[in-house]
């Protein structure tokens, strides 16, 4: 065997081993959470999803946490989506290549790397205290909105830029205005990419802990309005685990895992459906 061939084979073997171990770790983590969480949920029964926790040890269900998590996620995305999309349209279609625009992009990239607990601290100082929102779903949603916005803008911008130039050309040559072209040709074509960004942002919002703990609080109640505080599943998990209630924690972890998995599968399914129709 030549040297080159030996190198080639060993490189292939290493790459294979690394790939396999990545998969093994993934299966290990998911499997462990499922094994410890799911039978435990089953022993509690459906009540786990439909009732509030009981007593000082928070036994029983997680219904208020599910509501808080969904409330916060949906609210933050409802705020983030129009603003993020608008910014992405501006960056991709209208902004040139000026210094100012590069600064916006740079800030967005920088912002997405800031630790979430820093966002949390900002949210606490600004939304909770300065704007007097108190610990509330709204303060939490606004903080999470700031966190997911940069990523949302950048993924949407990429998706819009990936739309072939020839579509725009065809549209403009048919007498459409720039805005008609964007709204009726570019955005529909970019929709799967934008949607993927949105769903990933939802996953991030749903899984956020530190920033939410500082802003939405940890009161285990079902929030009735955006100004009520709440305790998300992640924050609940945090408290249970710090109190040593590991089995209770794994039940919550299993729920979190399945929801985030659901987000990702939905994203995949939507994209596949879209491609079948238009690809």
């Amino acid at each position: 065997m030549t040297r080159a061939r030996v190198f080639d084979l060993s490189a292939k073997a290493v790459a294979w081993a690394v790939a396999i171990s990545t998969m093994v770790f993934l299966i290990l983590i998911i499997g462990y959470v499922v094994i410890r969480g799911v039978p435990s949920i089953a022993s509690v029964g459906l009540e786990f999803f439909t009732t509030a926790p009981r007593g000082i040890k928070m036994q029983g269900g997680v219904y208020p946490m599910i509501v808080s998590s969904i409330y916060l996620t949906v609210l933050s995305l409802v705020i983030a989506f129009p603003i993020g999309l608008g910014a992405a349209i501006y960056l991709a279609e209208y902004a040139g290549r000026g210094r100012f625009v590069e600064l916006i992009r740079f800030s967005a990239d920088l912002l997405s790397g800031v630790p979430s607990i820093v966002f949390g601290l900002f949210g606490l100082a600004f939304f909770v205290y300065f704007l007097k929102m108190g610990y509330s779903v709204l303060a939490g949603a606004l903080t999470v909105f700031l966190m997911v916005l940069p990523t949302l803008v950048r993924t949407s911008e990429q998706a819009i830029k990936a739309v072939p130039r020839s579509y725009r050309e065809a549209s403009l040559a048919l007498g459409a205005s720039k805005w008609q072209t964007i709204r009726r040709v570019v955005l529909p074509s970019a929709a799967p990419g934008i949607l993927t960004g949105v769903i990933l942002a939802m996953g991030r919002a749903f899984g956020e802990t530190a920033a939410v703990l500082f802003t939405a609080g940890s009161v285990p109640q079902t929030p009735a309005s955006p100004l009520d505080g709440g305790r998300t599943l992640t924050v609940h998990l945090f408290y249970l685990a710090t109190q040593g209630q590991i089995e209770d924690s794994f039940r919550v972890a299993a729920v979190l895992l399945f929801v985030v998995l659901g987000f990702n599968l939905t994203a995949g399914w939507m994209m596949a459906r879209f491609r079948r129709r238009f690809g």
Binding site: S166, Y167, A170, P188, S189, F278
Partner: peptide, 19 residues
């Protein structure tokens, strides 16, 4: 816009919309 309505154009590569 009305000029381009009056003058149609067909391009090198077929470029139908993904619709």
């Amino acid at each position: 816009f009305s000029l381009r309505k009056k003058v149609g154009m067909v391009f090198q590569r077929p470029n139908p919309f993904p619709k």
